[in-house]
C-alpha cells in the first residue's frame, strides 16, 4: 500500500511538471517521469513476495513465480515511450529553429 502511494507521488511530480512548467524540455521531462511511474506501477502489481523470475528451470518445478503478464505488457510500453520521446523532441527542435526559444508562451505567431 505504502509503495503504491510512493509510486503515485512520483506520478504527481511528473504531472506538476507537465502542467506548470513553461519550458518545452521540462514538459517532455515530466512526460518521461509519468511514463516511468506507470511502468513501475504495473510491475509492482505483479510482484509476489519472495517470488522468482518467470523463467522455468530444467531440474526443478518452480511454483512461486512473479506474474509474467505485466512484465510483457510493460516491455511493449517502454519501447513505445522511446518512440514518443523521440517524436516530441524532434518537434521541439523544429520549434526552436523557427522561434528561437523553448518558452511556450512566446510561441504565438503563425509561420509557414
Amino acid at each position: 500500500m505504502m509503495i503504491y502511494l510512493l509510486c503515485l507521488i512520483l506520478f504527481c511530480i511528473g504531472l506538476y511538471g507537465v502542467l506548470r512548467k513553461r519550458n518545452i524540455v521540462k514538459i517532455i521531462v515530466g512526460l518521461g517521469i509519468i511514463e516511468y511511474s506507470m511502468n513501475l506501477f504495473f510491475v509492482l502489481l505483479g510482484y509476489r513476495t519472495h517470488g522468482r523470475s518467470p523463467i522455468e528451470a530444467r531440474t526443478e518445478n518452480v511454483l512461486n513465480m512473479v506474474d509474467p503478464l505485466p512484465q510483457a505488457v510493460v516491455l511493449t510500453s517502454i519501447v513505445i515511450s522511446l518512440a514518443v520521446t523521440a517524436l516530441v523532441i524532434s518537434i521541439a527542435i523544429r520549434i526552436y529553429e523557427y522561434y528561437g526559444t523553448f518558452d511556450i508562451t512566446k510561441i504565438k505567431r503563425l509561420k509557414g
Partner: peptide
Amino acid sequence: LKAPDLAITQ
C-alpha cells in the same frame, strides 16, 4: 522486482 528482461530493455 525480478524482471530481468525489463531491466535490460530499460
